[in-house]
């Protein structure tokens, strides 16, 4: 069973429906015990980093998430669920993340960019993936595929070997990561039509 963690941040409905659509056995989960019991974990989320990390600690989910990744369970972070894996985020101050992936979360800054007039923040819409490391999440997904993004912050991992894809928006930023059993995307597979559903099907069959 794939457990989708509900911690009150954003639209889980779409993630749930998209997994069901590809025939996955999936459930919404809300407790540390359920994280321990699930075979695979999905951490979605949109909204503020600070609220999200505080809620994960308050609901005693943070330790369970860290332990589940350490134990080798397949894990998929989506959007804020990618950013939360990092050491630190600079969204409205400086906030400690889960520290599973060394690195930081930064805001797009085009103030000195030569194309600052046309580069918009949030980065909203469909953008293409440049694939790096043969990540199994992207089986049957073509290099250059378009997926749906909506975010103002992006991750900067210390170790570039975790980079699965990059994407161009003013700069080339990390749009997904992969390390062993751990997968996380800045974009929304559940909103990326066929390409995204293929990724969820791939995750379900790992």
């Amino acid at each position: 069973m794939i457990g989708i963690i509900d911690y009150g941040m954003g639209n889980l409905h779409s993630v749930l429906k998209a997994f069901e659509h590809v025939g996955a056995d999936v459930e919404i989960i809300t407790s540390a015990a359920q994280i321990d019991a699930a075979d695979k974990i999905v951490l979605p989320g949109v909204g503020a980093f600070q609220d999200a990390i505080r809620t994960l600690h308050e609901k005693e989910l943070a330790a369970a998430i860290i332990e589940s990744v350490r134990s080798g369970k397949c894990f998929l972070g989506i959007c804020l669920g990618l950013q939360l894996l990092f050491d630190v985020s600079f969204e409205d101050g400086e906030h400690q993340g889960l520290g599973i992936i060394p690195g930081k979360v930064k805001r797009f800054d085009f103030s000195t960019h030569p194309h600052k007039d046309i580069l918009k923040i949030p980065h909203i819409g469909w953008n293409s993936l440049k694939m790096r490391n043969g990540c199994p999440l992207y089986r049957e997904v073509a290099d250059g595929s378009f997926v749906y993004f909506v975010h103002s912050y992006y991750v900067v991992p210390d170790d570039s070997s975790v980079i699965a894809t990059t994407t161009e928006h003013g700069i080339e930023f990390v749009s997904s990561i992969h390390r062993e059993n751990l997968f996380a995307t800045q974009f929304h597979p559940e909103k990326s039509q066929r390409v995204g559903l293929q990724m969820l099907a791939n995750f379900a069959s790992l």
Partner: peptide, 13 residues
């Protein structure tokens, strides 16, 4: 523009 949206069946393994 995004042109790669053609509806194809999803591969399941």
């Amino acid at each position: 523009v995004r042109l790669d949206y053609q509806v194809q069946p999803i591969s399941r393994n």
